[in-house]
């Protein structure tokens, strides 16, 4: 019983982070049809920015906000400077570009910040909360993780559903030519989409790092899990990405808790293969019938 609860709670926290990361991947895929593998090192880089600020004696929250802002800028710059020129020149080009960026950002981080492990602070306790004498696996930072992801997702829903900018962004993602004819500056909307996705990715980076160790490769596994979560939910569906993230977090937590932590990566890949074999459009795809 105790272990079941522990495993479930750990899975939910992990799932929240995977959900955020998957959502970042889906936002970019929907608008520009690029799987942004560089999302991981981008988030790693912005987390280092937070770390530098915090280690310089400023508050955790200043570093936190600075990292998110850095993500916003980095996302916009990557889209505008690197992705835009290869747009429409073969789907593979942009993907190879993000893989290249993956390697470059790794090296940059190693050069600037060093490649040793550094511990990243957490603003809340990282020990289990005590409930009636027994310690539950849910930590203060775990609760914060789930809340932060829920709040960000709520804000994104508000943005996309109820604001003019959000409407323009959705139109640009679904029908760029029609959107342009309706007076939407599609290029700007795509840049903004990448920027916002990078913020969500950065958030995931910070949440993974909190109370743990960072090094240039610490996000690399997360991009794999985020990608699996996104495929699980349907690459085209933001809601699916979130559900896929939570589901994957729970699955992997159970694998780790009951079968052994060394099997986690393999389990993730098995899930990926199974989804691609059985339901390639994802479990929650809303646009499976879409005529492209």
């Amino acid at each position: 019983m105790q272990q079941l609860l522990t495993t479930t709670l750990t899975g939910l926290v992990l799932g929240a982070v995977y959900a955020a990361f998957a959502l970042a991947l889906v936002m970019i895929w929907r608008s520009t049809r690029v799987v942004n593998f560089a999302q991981a090192p981008m988030a790693m880089l912005t987390t280092y920015i937070a770390l530098v600020i915090i280690e310089a004696g400023h508050s955790f929250w200043l570093g936190f906000v600075a990292a998110l802002l850095a993500g916003l800028v980095l996302g916009a710059v990557v889209e505008r400077v690197l992705v835009r020129p290869v747009e429409g020149k073969g789907d593979l080009n942009a993907v190879i570009l993000t893989l290249g960026l993956f390697i470059v950002l790794h090296s940059v981080a190693a050069l600037v910040f060093g490649s040793r492990y550094r511990s990243f602070p957490a603003p809340f306790g990282v020990r289990g909360i005590e409930v009636g004498g027994t310690t539950v696996a849910l930590t203060g930072f775990g609760i914060f993780t789930i809340l932060a992801v829920v709040v960000v997702m709520g804000l994104l829903v508000l943005l996309f559903r109820f604001t003019d900018v959000g409407l323009r962004m959705r139109a640009s993602a679904h029908s760029p030519e029609v959107a342009r004819l309706l007076g939407v500056r599609v290029g700007r909307m795509l840049t903004l989409g990448w920027a916002l996705a990078a913020v969500v990715g950065s958030l995931a980076g910070l949440l993974i790092a909190g109370g743990g160790l960072v090094h240039p490769g610490y996000m690399d596994a997360v991009v794999v899990y985020g990608f699996v979560a996104a495929v699980l939910g349907g690459l085209d569906s933001p809601g699916g990405a979130v559900a896929g993230g939570v589901l994957l977090g729970l699955c992997l937590s159970f694998v780790s808790g009951y079968l052994g932590s060394e099997l986690v990566a393999m389990a993730a890949l098995l899930i990926l293969v199974a989804v691609l074999l059985v339901k390639p459009s994802g479990l929650f795809a809303t646009t499976a019938h879409r005529r492209v």
């Binding site: 409407l167 959705r170 139109a171 679904h174 029908s175 030519e177 029609v178 309706l182 646009t287 879409r290």
Partner: peptide, 21 residues
């Protein structure tokens, strides 16, 4: 444009709002 150009993923009202923007 030819082929109508409805943005099928948006609601009727959202399509119309987009026009007004």
């Amino acid at each position: 444009p030819e082929g109508r150009g409805v943005i099928t993923e948006l609601t009727v009202e959202e399509n119309l709002r987009l026009g007004a923007l």
